[in-house]
Amino acid sequence: MFKIIFRPLLVLLFFSVLTGAVYPLLITGLSQTLFPRQANGSIIIKDGKPIGSELIAQPFTQNKYFHGRPSAVYQTTANSSGSNYGPTSVKLMDLVKERVAAVTRTNPSADIKNIPADLVLASASGLDPHISPEAALLQVERIVQARNISKELIIKIINENIESQQAGFLGADRVNVLKLNLAIDAIMEAKHE
């Protein structure tokens, strides 16, 4: 009887050590050796300070920066969430109207009837670091005005920052907003020097 009841517990404890301690420690050791940058969050360092992760969106509101996707969370807190609004949600449609209006207000080239979907609809994670190339191009005029920089140069930087479909057929073309803004910051800084 004792064996019937307690052997399962002992087996569970054994597997807890094997798969709950040995296995994750092994993976941690190997990843910290082989891929230390990725394993620690793909953090971008600028002037010796961490300024963000290339995989995690950060909020951009200033006119001189490209803006990312709408989010259902405060991107500065360690949290993640989608809006979870369904396709007939009145709350969602009100938000979309506001966002479409805001995008057209700040971007002179935007067509109010044809806004790229990713720019006015919230991401799944709330932390989507990317926007579509179309959503980036739509914001060019605004950046040109705010930064006093040539349109051609901005478009060139966008094109350089487009991450194409992986292996030619996986996923979608996209632009990393943080990397794009960093690239433009770098050019402006070079200009001033």
């Binding site: 609809l121 799944a124 990317h130």
Partner: peptide, 9 residues
């Protein structure tokens, strides 16, 4: 319908 979807996918 990009609501609740990620651009990279």
């Amino acid at each position: 319908n990009m609501e609740g979807k990620e651009v990279r996918f």
